[in-house]
Design a protein around this nucleic acid. Sequence first.
DNA 1: ATGGTTGTATAACAA
Length: 277
Amino acid sequence: MRHKPLVRPTRRWASSVTSDGMTIATFNANSVRARLDLILDYLAEHRPDVIALQETKVEDAKFPAEDFHEAGYNVVFHGIRTYNGVAIASLDPPRNVEIGFGDLEFQADARIIAADIGEVRIIDTYVPNGNAFGSEKFAYKLKWLDRFREYCEGLDPSRPIVWLGDVNIAPTPDDVYDSARKLGGVGHHPDEFAALDAILEWGWVDVFRRFHSGPGHYTFWDFLIPNGVDRNLGWRIDHIYASPGAVEKCVRCEIDRQPRLHARPSDHTVVFAEFEL
DNA sequence: ATGGTTGTATAACAA
């Protein structure tokens, strides 16, 4: 049987050779296999330099790596059966790939993967949902966020670093469709705001809010709400954060609603940012 | 209306 390398060397594509900069995207796929056609269509149309995926919901042996390779992308991934799972696909080959937090803690939950792409370090996270305030899973979410805060202490703020993914927190009243009603529930709880603030003290900047203000900019619309997308009953819980060394190089950040309007969509959509890197 | 949908995996569980 032919050997399939985890990382296939690819030549730089035209979009990377020119000074157009880097486009870095994030997408909670809600199963990479169920969303494979959608993802491949997106990559063919937009050719982002990097796309970070969450909720791949597949163990590594069954990850559809060859489909990414055929699309011209390298891909590294860390998954388990049924739940969670993260992946980074990129035009340029990833280097210094790190699975988990770099220790044995939280190894089994498959929620963080990092790699250098070009000169930028990409940190892709799937923050625990938390289920409900007061639950064991909510406590685990806060514990995980504190572990990530500690992880960030080991990073060099002067380096260009982009942290992105599903953070499962709508951090301000503008980031969820009915803040007054949602406040105190999972995803919009003061304990989560505090945990995120503690992480942001490192210097992370939510680049979407450098370019867009006010309510109504959402990245997730619950399947359970009838016509929730048309009614824009959503949450902005998929974020792209830049390090102090990268924030001034970010020239654009947008939410692309098209993937959420796709047939058989994820409940999330794509967010992307452009960096002069 | 304490509902509703989706994916995994094939019975519930997570979201």
